[in-house]
């Protein structure tokens, strides 16, 4: 694999993917500071390891794999710092301004989505926001496709349980109908 990375190419990759990487990291960590750190670390690692990347494959799942690993490590570090009392209790949580989500239903849904556990949030953001297929998500997360489907179904079941009265049709769709490959 001869994958030399020029500055121009690196800039192109950064411009195309950095905003989405940032938003995924922000969604998972709920901290702007952490999301910035994660975004920079992601691209430093992507640039460093670009020579190992098979350019015949799509780059997005690979970039997100790096993002998720770094995010998990950062969150683990945050937990440890909190445990030993070296982190202020209030971290930089971001809140969606009321004006962005117009309807009551959308607000309810948003609140429940951000309250899902980390594993559920990972599959939800990659599938519904980044538009990745389940096979790509399972590659990014390093988990079997079955586990990926199961996590997505679990997330939707949780949302279904917490949002009983709604018009969200997607909650009634089984996991098998999601595009996998």
């Amino acid at each position: 694999m001869n994958n030399e990375l020029s500055k121009e190419k690196a800039e192109m990759i950064f411009k195309e993917h950095s905003t989405y990487v940032y938003r995924v990291a922000l969604f998972l960590t709920q901290s702007k500071e952490l999301a910035d750190d994660i975004t920079q670390e992601t691209f430093i690692q992507v640039f460093r390891k670009y020579y190992t990347f098979d350019s015949s494959k799509p780059i997005q799942p690979w970039i997100y794999k790096v993002t998720l690993n770094i995010t998990r490590n950062m969150l683990r570090k945050q937990k440890w710092l909190r445990f030993i009392g070296q982190l202020p209790e209030k971290s930089n949580l971001y809140l969606v301004e009321n004006s962005v989500l117009k309807s009551e239903e959308e607000n309810e849904l948003w609140k429940e989505i951000i309250n899902l556990n980390l594993k559920s949030r990972e599959v939800v953001i990659l599938h519904f926001y980044s538009g990745m297929k389940l096979k790509e998500i399972s590659d990014s997360l390093g988990i079997p496709l079955g586990t990926c489907k199961s996590r997505l179904n679990s997330a939707l079941s949780t949302l279904r349980g917490r949002l009983p009265v709604n018009d969200f049709k997607f909650l009634n769709i089984g996991g098998d109908t999601f595009e996998t490959l």
């Binding site: 940032y22 938003r23 962005v100 926001y129």
Partner: peptide, 13 residues
């Protein structure tokens, strides 16, 4: 919902 909630956010780096 995700798109609306996240669209105004971007990195500072």
């Amino acid at each position: 919902v995700l798109e609306k909630a996240l669209e105004h956010h971007s990195q500072s780096i």
